[in-house]
Amino acid sequence: MSKRKELGDKVVDKDTVMDDESGDDEDFDVLNVDFEWFDPQPEVDFHGIKTLLQQLFDVDAQLFDLSALTDLILSQPTLGSTVKVDGNETDAYAFLSVLNLQQHKDEPYMGKIIQYLLSKSKSKSELAPIVELLSQPTIPSIGLILTERLINVPSEVVPPMYTMLQEEIQWAIEDKEPYNFSHYLILSKTYTEVASKLDAEDDRPKKKKKAAGGSFETMYFHPEDEVLHRHAICHGGYDYSTKQDDGYSDSKRAFQELGIKPQGHAILISADKFKAAVEDIAEYLKPQA
Score class of each variant (00 low, 15 high):
Val30Gln: 13
Leu69Val: 02
Ala94Pro: 04
Ile173Ser: 06
Phe64Ile: 02
Ile173Gly: 08
Thr218Val: 13
Gln256Met: 09
Asp250Thr: 11
Leu117His: 03
Thr78Gly: 13
Val157Ala: 08
Phe57Tyr: 13
His231Trp: 01
Thr70Ala: 04
Leu101Trp: 05
Gln55Thr: 14
Gln288His: 15
Gly143Phe: 08
Lys3Ala: 01
His235Leu: 00
Pro223Leu: 01
Ala200Trp: 08
Asp27Ile: 03
Thr90Arg: 14
Lys14Trp: 06
Glu226Gly: 01
Asp39Ser: 14
Thr163Gly: 08
Gln166Arg: 13
Leu31Trp: 11
Thr163Val: 09
Asp25Met: 13
Arg204His: 14
Gln263Leu: 00
Gln115Asp: 15
Thr82Glu: 06
Ser67Gly: 10
Pro262Cys: 08
Asn180Lys: 06
Lys209Phe: 07
Phe46Pro: 07
Leu101Tyr: 04
Gln256Lys: 13
Glu224Gln: 12
Pro159Asn: 06
Gln41Met: 11
Glu257Gln: 11
Met18Ile: 07
Gln263Tyr: 12
Ser196Cys: 05
Asp58Trp: 05
Ile281Gly: 10
Leu228Phe: 13
Tyr284Asn: 14
Asp91Thr: 11
Phe38Ala: 10
Pro154Cys: 04
Ser97Trp: 03
Pro108Gln: 03
Ala61Thr: 03
Pro287Tyr: 12
Thr16Met: 10
Lys197Gln: 15
Leu63Trp: 06
Pro178Gln: 03
Leu66Gln: 03
Ser182Ala: 09
Val83Ser: 08
Leu7Glu: 04
Val153Ala: 12
Ile130Met: 00
Leu228Gln: 11
Asp71Phe: 04
Ala128Val: 00
His222Tyr: 12
Phe57Gln: 08
Thr16Ser: 12
Glu26Ala: 14
Pro77Asn: 11
Val11Thr: 12
Lys3His: 09
Thr51Ser: 14
Gly143Ile: 05
His231Gln: 01
Ile173Lys: 15
Thr90Glu: 15
Phe57Thr: 07
Tyr184Met: 04
Val278Gln: 11
Phe35Asn: 07
Pro154Ala: 02
Glu21His: 12
